[in-house]
Measured scan of single mutants.
Amino acid sequence: GPGLTDLFKTEKAAVKKMAKAIMADPSKADDVYQKWADKGYTLTQLSDFLKSKTRGKYDRVYNGYMTYR
């Protein structure tokens, strides 16, 4: 089956995709945050998933999740 690194890459891609969806349409934020909360994502995990070469690119999404939880 898929190894943990593959799983991480898949999760990371999914999280980034959802983060971009929030940035494009902030009204989606609560739905996405709820999904992440259901998956039990911690802020540390989210921070790892949303690492970007562009500093602060996903800060709004991260901060939103922090206040959501």
Rank of each mutant, 00 (worst) to 15 (best):
D59Y: 09
D25M: 04
K9V: 07
V15P: 00
M18G: 06
Q45S: 05
A24G: 07
A13S: 08
A24S: 11
V32R: 01
A13V: 07
D6P: 12
Y62H: 04
V32L: 04
P26N: 06
F8D: 09
D59T: 09
M18I: 03
K17D: 05
G1Y: 11
T10A: 14
L43D: 05
M23T: 03
R69M: 15
E11H: 05
R55L: 14
L46G: 00
D6I: 08
E11C: 06
M66N: 07
S47I: 08
Y62Q: 05
Y62W: 08
Y41M: 09
K57R: 07
A29L: 02
Y58S: 01
A19G: 02
D25T: 04
L46S: 01
L7C: 15
K17N: 07
T54M: 06
Y41R: 01
K51W: 09
T5A: 11
Y41F: 06
P2H: 12
K39P: 01
T44Y: 10
A14S: 08
V61E: 01
T54W: 08
G56E: 05
K17W: 08
K16M: 09
L7A: 15
I22Q: 00
G64Y: 02
A24V: 10
K16L: 13
A37C: 13
K53D: 12
E11V: 06
T5D: 14
A24H: 08
D25N: 10
L4H: 13
V61D: 01
V61S: 01
R69Q: 12
F49H: 02
R55T: 13
K51T: 11
L46V: 08
T10Q: 14
P2T: 11
A24K: 12
G64I: 02
A19H: 00
D25Y: 04
A19W: 02
K57E: 09
S27C: 13
K9M: 06
G64D: 06
P2V: 11
S47C: 12
G56L: 04
G56F: 07
I22R: 00
K39M: 13
T10D: 11
P26I: 06
Y62L: 15
K20E: 10
K53L: 05
K20A: 10
K17V: 07
R55V: 13
G64W: 03
K53P: 07
M23G: 02
R69A: 07
A37G: 04
Y65M: 02
T5C: 15
E11L: 05
K16F: 04
Q45G: 03
K53A: 09
S27D: 08
K51R: 11
W36V: 00
T42C: 04
A21W: 08
S52G: 10
Y62I: 15
F49Y: 06
F49S: 02
A37N: 08
L46C: 02
A13P: 02
R69W: 10
K12W: 04
K57H: 06
K28V: 14
T67H: 14
A24R: 14
G3R: 09
L50W: 02
K28Y: 07
L50K: 01
E11K: 04
K51D: 10
D59W: 14
A13H: 12
K53Q: 09
T54D: 11
G64E: 06
K35D: 11
K12E: 06
T54F: 08
D6W: 04
G56P: 04
D38W: 07
A29R: 05
K16A: 04
L43K: 04
P2N: 13
W36N: 00
K57A: 06
S52R: 04
E11M: 05
K51V: 09
T10P: 06
Y33S: 01
P26L: 06
K20L: 10
T67N: 14
F49P: 01
M18H: 05
L7K: 12
K51Q: 10
S27P: 03
K53I: 04
A13W: 09
K9R: 10
T10C: 15
S52T: 10
T44R: 14
G1K: 10
S27Y: 06
N63G: 06
V32W: 02
Q45D: 09
K51S: 11
M18Q: 14
D59S: 10
G1V: 13
L43T: 06
L7S: 15
Y58H: 02
S52D: 12
W36T: 00
A29W: 02
G64S: 03
